[in-house]
Computed example of a mutant assay.
Amino acid sequence: MASTLSAYSDKIREMSVLSLICSCLATQPHPNTLVQYEDMEVKTLNKRTSGQAFEVILKSPTDLSPERPQSLALPPQKKEPSLGELQRRLQAAEERRKSQEKQFLKQLAERREHEKEVLHKAQEVHNNYSKMAEEKLNYKMELNKENRTARLNAMKQRLREKEVHAAEVRRNKELQSELSG
């Protein structure tokens, strides 16, 4: 009731003095009334360039006619629920809780299963990568070993060739010294 009274007083402060006087004097609905509710009526004002204008007239609780039901009356008191009704509600709440718990556990299990799958896949990717990296490393090491062996063999061959050449040069010098000698 206090909130309705404060709403009325706020509305009265917002209304212009002329419309307040007119609404107090004219108790019958105006011919341009659009809608009439229990304690207020909405009517159109002259059209303006900015659009349609409406006026809302609030009626005080004393203006309500006796044939209309009073909306401001207190609502009927709720009767206390019976013990059976309380037990039924409690049982329904318990069933909802159990259902929600079961659904939550199901989602949790699905999430764990998904996490296991993701971890397994990540483990596979890691193992494949490690295996590939190891194979590459072994290949490079083998290639380096082959290259080193090939270079070593090439150096040995050049050394042999130089030794053969040096032996030839020495023999030629000896022959030359014998001939000139």
Rank of each mutant, 00 (worst) to 15 (best):
T62H: 12
N32F: 07
S82K: 07
L58M: 15
N128A: 09
P61I: 11
E14I: 02
A92N: 11
S3T: 11
S9A: 05
K102G: 00
E110Y: 01
N128R: 11
R158F: 01
Q28G: 01
Y8M: 10
F104K: 10
K162V: 05
V118E: 13
S99R: 10
L83I: 04
E178Q: 11
A166H: 05
Q103W: 02
R48E: 14
V17Q: 09
E85G: 01
P29I: 11
R89W: 08
D63T: 08
R68H: 05
L58D: 03
A92V: 06
L45Q: 06
F54H: 06
E178S: 11
N128T: 07
A93S: 07
L45I: 01
A2H: 06
R89S: 09
L74M: 06
A150F: 10
L58Q: 04
L58K: 02
S65Q: 12
Y37V: 03
P66S: 14
E101K: 04
Y8W: 13
G181Y: 07
E80I: 09
R97C: 00
V125W: 02
P69H: 03
T33F: 05
Q123K: 10
E142V: 01
Y129R: 02
F54N: 00
K136E: 15
E168Q: 14
R13T: 10
S180K: 04
V42T: 09
P75N: 03
Q77R: 10
G181T: 10
N128Q: 14
L143G: 00
N32A: 11
R148N: 15
L90I: 01
K145T: 12
R13P: 00
A53Q: 11
K79V: 14
K106I: 02
E161L: 04
R148D: 15
V42F: 08
S3W: 03
R160W: 02
G84V: 10
E94R: 03
K162Q: 13
N127F: 01
E142N: 09
A92D: 15
L108H: 06
K11I: 10
L45M: 11
T33C: 15
K79E: 15
R171K: 12
N46Q: 13
L74A: 12
K59T: 07
K116I: 12
E178W: 09
V164C: 03
A109C: 04
E94W: 00
E161I: 00
Q123E: 13
L86F: 00
V35T: 11
I12P: 00
K47F: 02
K145E: 14
S3I: 07
V42C: 13
R97F: 06
E101M: 10
D39F: 07
R97D: 05
G51M: 09
N144D: 14
L175R: 03
K11N: 07
L175E: 14
H120C: 04
A7V: 08
N46I: 01
L74F: 06
R170E: 14
L34C: 03
L159Q: 12
R151K: 11
A167Q: 15
Q52T: 15
Q176P: 00
D39V: 07
V56F: 11
P75C: 02
S71C: 02
R89V: 01
F54V: 08
G84E: 13
R96Y: 08
E41G: 00
P69Q: 08
L175C: 02
Y129C: 02
R160Q: 13
M132K: 11
A166W: 06
M40T: 03
R111C: 12
L159N: 03
M15R: 02
E101A: 12
A154N: 06
Q157F: 10
